[in-house]
């Protein structure tokens, strides 16, 4: 019981996720800055931003439903934290593995996007409403290719469990090469999920001020931003577990390998963000359905055929 509580609250649960997501934000920002030939923020900047926001006054719009408005950031954070508990960290096995946790994690990760939509809708401001609609439109575009890209390796592994997939590819590392198209699709779709460039239309600063978060301020915005950072960590961890099958038995060494793997994913995501311009929402929908989904579909067909042949 005590160990479970420790696991949930401290490591690898809530506290670790919080600290690691701040570190991740720093790494993301510094790579972004260095690619732009800028100095970049100092190491404590994400923490300073967070503390500053926590100390600021929280303003709630008159027309908004106060309870839901306050609850949404906590929902987002809770969903992300819950998802993190099912991702393998120190070794092949996650904290509480069970058959089908991949699906649960993917659905838990949909909740933040839904809260973004609701947050925008509840704010009853024009900019947030447009941002909310865009967030929803975007969800329908990237979610399908993302799910398919993560389910294709699962089909080959013959299990719906993240730990099971990790174990399978750890045992047969060469099969991961089959999944390279799925990896590329996942990386692109993740940018949509995390609302990062080139798919940051829901909070396109130069069009919609802050999009869905226009009316959020103070502590509530701080929690939302924390949730977004944490989502980045969780998604990077999932990608690392599914597509980078390197695991060792030693817990400490395993943790080090986890850090390296997630950093590699963060690096790829940061580069992707630096070299793209924001595209329009209708271009994004077309791109996702016309190119990403067929590639993901092809991957699933290939994996089913291979599975059948085996």
């Amino acid at each position: 019981m005590a160990l479970s509580l420790f696991n949930i609250l401290i490591f690898p649960g809530f506290l670790f996720l919080g600290v690691y997501s701040l570190a991740f934000e720093y790494i993301d920002r510094i790579i972004y800055a260095r690619m732009q030939n800028r100095q970049g923020p100092p190491w404590f900047q994400p923490l300073a931003d967070f503390l500053k926001l926590v100390g600021k006054e929280t303003i709630i719009p008159e027309d908004a439903d106060k309870n839901i408005f306050k609850a949404l950031p906590i929902f987002a954070m809770a969903a992300v934290t819950a998802a993190f508990l099912y991702v393998p960290i120190t070794g092949v096995n996650s904290l509480f593995p069970f058959e089908g946790d991949l699906i649960v994690v993917l659905y838990l990760l949909t909740i933040p996007t839904l809260t973004f939509f609701l947050a925008g809708w509840m704010s009853s401001s024009l900019y947030s409403t447009i941002g909310a609609v865009r967030a929803m439109t975007q969800l329908f575009s990237y979610e399908v290719p993302l799910f398919m890209a993560l389910l294709a390796p699962a089909i080959l592994a013959g299990t719906w469990s993240l730990s099971g997939i990790a174990a399978y590819y750890h045992a047969n590392p060469l099969w991961i090469l089959v999944n390279i198209p799925a990896f590329l699709v996942a990386i692109v779709a993740i940018q949509g999920k995390l609302e990062r460039l080139p798919f940051d239309m829901p909070e396109a600063e130069t069009e919609l001020c802050a999009g869905t978060f226009t009316e959020y301020s103070g502590r509530l915005l701080a929690i939302f931003r924390m949730a977004i950072d944490a989502e980045l960590v969780v998604v990077a961890a999932i990608v690392a577990a599914v597509f980078f099958p390197i695991f060792v038995a030693n817990a400490w060494l395993g943790f080090l390998i986890f850090v390296i793997k997630t950093l590699v994913v963060a690096f790829i995501l940061a580069i992707f963000r630096s070299v793209m311009a924001r595209i329009r929402i209708e271009q994004m929908v077309i791109f996702c359905w016309k190119y990403l989904t067929p590639v993901a579909l092809l991957q699933i067909v290939i994996n089913i055929v291979i599975k059948g042949v085996l």
């Binding site: 260095r34 732009q36 030939n37």
Partner: peptide, 10 residues
């Protein structure tokens, strides 16, 4: 842009 990763910031 990748070339600038190793360069000193401006």
């Amino acid at each position: 842009a990748m070339g600038h990763l190793s360069k000193a910031p401006a």
